[in-house]
Amino acid sequence: MTADGFLNQRQRHPVAMAAAIAINLGAVTALMLAKTGVVVIPPGAIPLIPITEPPPPEPAKDTQPETKQPEPAPFVPPRQVPSQPAGERPLIDSTPSLPPLGGTGTGETVIQPRVEPTPTPAPNPVMVDAVPVPSAMRDFQPPYPPQLLRTGVEGKAVVRVLIGADGRVKQVAIISADDPLFADATERQALRKWRFRPATRDGLAVESWKQMTVRFEIRS
């Protein structure tokens, strides 16, 4: 190929010349950076990220407290038993051991709790009311007041009497009366003539109150 032909060819391909110059410059720059330790990433290349491995885990520390070992018990030499002379028998105490008084045989004193007896409820007393003596019933009716008898007035008197342990009336309380003369006649008759079998409590005579009604009627 002639010189004119080569020059003409170079003039015809300026792009090839620029590429050759860029390659040479890149080679020179790479050599210079390699000496300085700097790495240049060419355009369009994907950078590589170095992977650093984590350090190995440290061994786990024992968090439990140190157990204190018990101290060894002090050495106690065995008790020396005195030897018996030849031909003699050892003495043996044959007396049985008795437990302490008030104990259980183990040396402990047992105190028995005191049990209070359950009181037995007293039975209810047997009460019997006072009743008129049958032989004295004819004396229970008081005399008719003369004034009321002449006028033909009839009625009744209600009284409460306190009967003593001897069966006699000790007190008279007027509850109601159709006429004061009926009340007076009944009170006098009760204190003088009325007789009762007294009330009893468990068979014993006692005082008691009893209500009585006396009627005053005129019979033809």
Rank of each mutant, 00 (worst) to 15 (best):
R188N: 05
R150H: 10
I163Y: 04
D93K: 12
V115H: 05
A60M: 11
I174W: 00
R197F: 08
A16W: 09
A157N: 10
G155M: 02
V128E: 12
P65S: 10
Q141N: 08
L25S: 03
D139F: 07
K68S: 05
A30D: 03
V76F: 11
A130Q: 06
T29Q: 12
V128Q: 14
P146G: 06
P134L: 10
A60D: 13
L98R: 10
R138P: 02
P85M: 03
L91W: 15
R150S: 15
M137R: 07
Q171H: 09
D166G: 02
S208Y: 06
T213E: 15
V28Y: 05
I218L: 13
I163W: 03
G155Y: 04
D62G: 00
Q11W: 00
T95G: 04
E187Q: 08
G37C: 09
R197M: 10
T120F: 01
V131M: 02
I111Y: 12
V81L: 15
D179Y: 02
R160S: 12
P132T: 09
L148C: 02
V161W: 01
W194R: 02
V39T: 15
T29S: 11
M17A: 14
T36K: 08
M137W: 01
D139I: 00
L101D: 14
W209G: 07
A183C: 03
M1F: 14
A22P: 00
G105E: 04
Q171M: 07
G5A: 14
E88S: 06
V126T: 14
R188M: 06
P72H: 06
I41W: 08
M1Q: 13
A86S: 05
V115S: 02
R215H: 07
P56Q: 15
R188H: 04
P77C: 00
A157G: 08
A177Y: 04
T104Q: 03
P145A: 10
G164A: 05
P123Y: 00
E88R: 09
T95N: 15
T120N: 05
V126I: 15
R138M: 02
A34G: 15
L91P: 05
P121K: 05
T109M: 10
A73L: 08
P56M: 11
T151N: 14
Q211Y: 01
Q141C: 02
G103N: 07
P143I: 14
M17Y: 09
T36F: 05
L25F: 02
Q80Y: 13
G152I: 09
D129V: 11
D93V: 14
A177S: 13
W209T: 07
Q112A: 10
R197T: 07
V126G: 02
I174K: 01
Q80G: 09
V15R: 04
R89P: 05
Q171L: 08
R195Y: 09
Q211I: 08
P134N: 08
M137Q: 07
P132V: 12
Q69S: 09
Q69E: 14
T120V: 14
F216S: 09
T200V: 04
Q112P: 01
I163G: 03
